[in-house]
C-alpha cells in the first residue's frame, strides 16, 4: 500500500468526525488525538521493527521484548497499586510467561528464532497477559473488599491467609480467564482474528494463516491461565502481615 492510498483511508476518520460534530458529541478532539497518536506510534514501531529485523541481533530483540514488558507493566500496575510490590510481581509474571512460551516455540522449533517471529508473538502474548493482569487485579481487589468479613471469619477460625482468600482467588482467576476461553469458542464464526485477516490480505495462504492463528490461540490460553494463577499467588500475601492479619487499609486507601 502506498502512502497516497493510506492517506485516502483518512476518509474513515472524516466520517465519524462529521457525525460527531453534527450530533454535538464533543469528542472531536479525542478522535483527532487518537488518529494522530496511532499514526505516529505505529509508524515509529514499523520503522523500529524494520531496523531490528534488518540487523537481526539477539540483544536488540531482547531489548524490544523488554520494552514490550515495560510498557505492559506500566499499564497494568495502575490497577494493582494497592498491592505491595505489584510492579516486580507483574514483571516476574510477564517474564515467566515470555520464557515459557518462547522456550516452547523456539525450543521445539515451532518458530525460527528470528526477530520477525519472536517480537510480534511476544507482543501478542505480553499484551494479552497485560489485559488478563488488569482483569484479575480489578476483580481480586473488589472481591477482597466485598468479602472482607468472610475472609476474617476464616482467619478467626485459625485459617491461613491462603485459605482465607481461597474463594476470592478462585473466583478472580475464573472470572479473568473466562473471556479468553469464551472468545475462542466463537473464533472464526463471527469475525476473523486480526492477525489472520492481516496475513490473508497480505497474500498468505489461508491455511497457513489459520495454522499461525491456532498457534496464537493456544498460546493465549496458556498466557491467560498462567497470568491469573501466577499473579494471584504472588499478590495475596501482600494483603496480610506476619501476624496473619488482613491489612484492610491497604485496599481501602485506594477505593
Amino acid at each position: 500500500m502506498s502512502f497516497q492510498t493510506l492517506a485516502l483511508t483518512l476518509l474513515f476518520v472524516l466520517i465519524p468526525l462529521v457525525l460527531v460534530y453534527l450530533l454535538k458529541l464533543q469528542i472531536e478532539k479525542d478522535i483527532i488525538i487518537a488518529t494522530i497518536r496511532s499514526i505516529i506510534q505505529l509508524l515509529l514501531v514499523g520503522y523500529l521493527l524494520q531496523y531490528v529485523f534488518s540487523v537481526n541481533n539477539l540483544i536488540m530483540t531482547i531489548l524490544m521484548v523488554g520494552l514490550i514488558i515495560g510498557a505492559a507493566t506500566q499499564n497494568a500496575r495502575k490497577k494493582g497499586v494497592a498491592i505491595k510490590g505489584i510492579t516486580w510481581k507483574l514483571i516476574l509474571t510477564f517474564i515467566t510467561i515470555e520464557v515459557i512460551t518462547q522456550g516452547i516455540l523456539i525450543g521445539l522449533a515451532i518458530i525460527p528464532a528470528t526477530p520477525q517471529y519472536v517480537i510480534p508473538i511476544s507482543g501478542m502474548v505480553v499484551g494479552n497477559a497485560m489485559v488478563l493482569a488488569i482483569l484479575f487485579l480489578n476483580r481480586f481487589t473488589d472481591e477482597v473488599n466485598d468479602k472482607e468479613k468472610q475472609i476474617e471469619l476464616i482467619l478467626s477460625l485459625g485459617g491461613t491467609p491462603k485459605q482465607a482468600v481461597h474463594r476470592q482467588l478462585i473466583t478472580s482467576i475464573k472470572a479473568s480467564t473466562i473471556p479468553t476461553i469464551e472468545n475462542q469458542k466463537t473464533i472464526g464464526l463471527v469475525q476473523l482474528p486480526g492477525m489472520m485477516s492481516g496475513q490473508i490480505i497480505a497474500g498468505a495462504d489461508p491455511i497457513q494463516a489459520v495454522q499461525f492463528q491456532l498457534l496464537i490461540i493456544f498460546l493465549l490460553l496458556t498466557t491467560a491461565v498462567l497470568t491469573s494463577v501466577m499473579l494471584g499467588l504472588l499478590s495475596y500475601p501482600a494483603l496480610f502481615n506476619n501476624r496473619l492479619q488482613l491489612l484492610k487499609n491497604v485496599l481501602n486507601e485506594h477505593h
Binding site: 482467619l155 478467626s156 485459625g158 485459617g159 491461613t160 501476624r243 496473619l244
Partner: peptide, 11 residues
C-alpha cells in the same frame, strides 16, 4: 502462633 491463638481464643 496466630493460628494456635485463634484456635485457642474463639470469637
Amino acid at each position: 502462633d496466630p493460628i494456635k491463638l485463634r484456635t485457642m481464643v474463639g470469637i
